[in-house]
Write a protein that binds this DNA or RNA. Structure first.
Ligand SMILES: [Mn+2]
Ligand SMILES: [Mn+2]
Ligand SMILES: [Mn+2]
Ligand SMILES: [Mn+2]
Lengths: 222, 222
DNA sequence: ACAAATATTTAGGTGATCCTAAATATTTTA
DNA sequence: TAAAATATTTAGGATCACCTAAATATTTGT
């Protein structure tokens, strides 16, 4: 049933999945930027993906792309690989959370379904990767995540960090140095409505966090 | 210095390495068969590899190909990846020796040098893969192997199996069922000069082994 | 509402890797 | 040693995933 998708196609589908997480279709430029490819090339590829036998994407000129049900499954397969591999690199080979992304980006296309099953089982079928990102289930559904962005908290509220949406190694190391990693308890000690800065108490220390970071950290209030 | 080689090129170099192990250049047909590619395509590729900046192969029309020093290093890098990955799949994910080849064939092109170093270290820098094949050193030299083919033994000689040169899963399972795996002690109880069959005592049982197998098993006399 | 700015698509390539069919070279065999 | 058999190369394509430049469409700002 499944013609094996090329690495390129897998990366397009994953990028479309991530860019359409908010419900809006992904536009050509955003895809081009994320994939490091010229916009013209992106147009060509998404046109092809929308025309193959069972279409992987839905596309209308100048309106952006969305994944079809087929495309969504294919994207979740790649994302499941990626996140399981990240978890496994950390737990069995001592990688740190800023090192796993690049390695997983390659390995996600190279492992078999058998390998996927073996690491999932060896890890005890984890629900989240080292950044707290949910791992799609073996039958390719994405678990619902009810977390709040840190940016939504206000003075006096306390929460626990659950998820960090970042790939950049330097940013990840910075967050690590702040203590903004899954599991950390935090409390908002101040909020500035002008610049949306939050002052956050982390491990007895106050840090001022801007939107660039606070929109990427997801928490659970308590 | 190193332009990253494509997966195709890596597989060509590995195949040439293996086919030239006996000293003779590799011919087009053998390469084509091993790679599952049309002979015409092989000619095109080896012509290209012989013309790139520092040539990876030495080639003369109708005379076959050999690796240059450059090509040899590149081949050993891929083989090191392959064999370390095989060892690691067996030791950490419970793969059996007939399952590792296909998986390693893909992963060998996807791992980073960092990953290579981590698994080598985690495994204690092993010298052989699960089939007993020597693993090239980190500085890309192939350890000398002084083993004898099983086919060279004669009646009365005893030896220990050290290496099995096979990829086919069915053959590997067959060898496993015979006990012809690295570490097993054997004794030759008969030799037939007409068909070169050997009768081999393995774990108290006699088996008659033809050349198809006895040339692929390497042993150390004792 | 319209011009300017921005985004997207079309047109026309390129390079990598593979294919088949036909031509040619080498090796084998009678 | 000359056919016949086999191996190899050349010629001409195809597909994939990119690219740049130019054309066109959409969005934004006044
Ligand atoms: Mn990828
Ligand atoms: Mn992650
Ligand atoms: Mn390979
Ligand atoms: Mn092996």
């Amino acid at each position: 049933m499944e013609t094996t998708l090329t690495i390129s196609v897998q990366d397009y589908l994953k990028a479309i999945y991530e860019l359409t997480a908010g419900g809006e279709p992904a536009n050509t430029t955003a895809l081009a930027t994320r994939l490091g490819i010229a916009p013209a090339s992106v147009t060509g590829m998404i046109q092809k993906l929308s025309r193959i036998k069972p279409p992987l994407v839905e596309y209308r000129k100048h309106q952006g792309v969305k994944l079809t049900a087929q495309g969504n499954k294919a994207a979740l397969e790649v994302i499941r690989h990626h996140r399981l591999i990240e978890a496994w690199l950390v737990q069995t080979l001592g990688y740190s959370w800023d090192e796993v992304h690049a390695e997983a980006e390659q390995l996600e296309h190279a492992i078999s379904e058998d390998f996927e099953a073996r690491i999932a089982s060896a890890l005890g079928n984890p629900e989240r990767d080292p950044h707290g990102e949910p791992i799609p289930s073996v039958n390719l559904t994405m678990p619902e995540d009810t977390l709040l962005p840190l940016a939504a908290l206000r003075k006096g509220q306390a929460a626990i960090v659950k998820r960090v949406n970042a790939e950049n190694p330097e940013l990840l190391r910075h967050l690590d140095s702040l203590g903004l990693v899954p599991g950390t308890k935090i409390e908002i000690t101040d909020y500035s409505p002008y610049d949306n800065n939050l002052t956050v108490l982390i491990d007895d220390q106050d840090f001022v966090i801007g939107l660039a970071i606070s929109t990427k950290i997801f928490v659970e209030k308590f």
